[in-house]
Simulated scan of single mutants.
Amino acid sequence: MNYPLRRLFSMLAVALLAVAGLTGCLATPDSAGGDPNAVRIGTLRGQPHLYAPYFMQRFAPQNTSYEIVLFENSPDIKNALASGAIDLGVLGAPAMLAGIAAEQDVRILASAADGGSGFVGRPEIRTPQDLRGKKIGFPAGSSQEIALKLTLRANGLDPDTDVQLVNLAYSDMASAYSAGRVDAFLSAEMGVSIARQAGAHQIVSAYDTPIGATNIVFGGNGRFLDEQGDRARDAVMAFTRAIDAMKGDRAAWASGLVDTFGTDRAVTDIAIENITLRWRLDDEYRGRVAELARQMVAFDQLPTAPDMTEAYRPEFLETVGAGR
Rank of each mutant, 00 (worst) to 15 (best):
S142Y: 01
L5N: 08
P139C: 08
R278G: 05
A198W: 09
L50D: 01
A32N: 10
F299N: 06
P123Y: 00
R153K: 10
T161V: 12
E124R: 05
A245C: 15
V258E: 07
M190T: 12
R196D: 09
R278V: 15
A102W: 08
E291T: 05
T319P: 02
A251Q: 06
S175C: 03
D259I: 11
A27R: 01
P303T: 14
S205V: 01
L131I: 02
A176Q: 04
L109R: 13
G89M: 14
M96A: 14
H49W: 07
G180F: 12
L148N: 09
E284A: 15
V166Y: 03
I270H: 11
S205F: 02
D160T: 04
P75C: 14
A113G: 10
L88I: 10
M308Y: 12
T260P: 14
A102Y: 14
R6N: 14
S143E: 02
L281E: 07
I100E: 13
T43M: 13
L5S: 09
P29C: 07
L317W: 00
T276N: 08
Q104D: 10
K78T: 00
G21D: 09
A52F: 00
P29E: 12
R153A: 11
I194L: 13
L22A: 10
V204G: 02
E72H: 12
R196L: 02
T209G: 10
A112V: 04
A154S: 15
I125V: 08
H201T: 04
A322N: 13
M246T: 05
R278Y: 01
A238F: 11
S142L: 02
A179I: 06
M56H: 02
E227L: 08
R288D: 00
V69N: 11
L257R: 05
V236Y: 05
D259H: 07
S143K: 04
A206C: 02
D76Q: 10
G199S: 08
D283E: 06
A298R: 08
A188S: 04
I77P: 12
V297L: 11
L302N: 03
Q164Y: 01
S74C: 13
V204Q: 05
Q295N: 12
V90K: 04
D230W: 00
T209I: 06
S117R: 05
A32C: 06
L8T: 12
R278H: 09
L8Y: 03
L17A: 15
G84A: 03
L17R: 13
L186P: 15
A188C: 05
R196K: 12
Q62E: 14
V166W: 04
K149Y: 12
A293M: 05
L168G: 15
G248M: 12
Y177F: 12
M237L: 09
A15V: 00
G141L: 07
A13Y: 11
N2W: 04
S175N: 15
L91P: 06
A251C: 10
A27E: 05
D269E: 14
N274F: 00
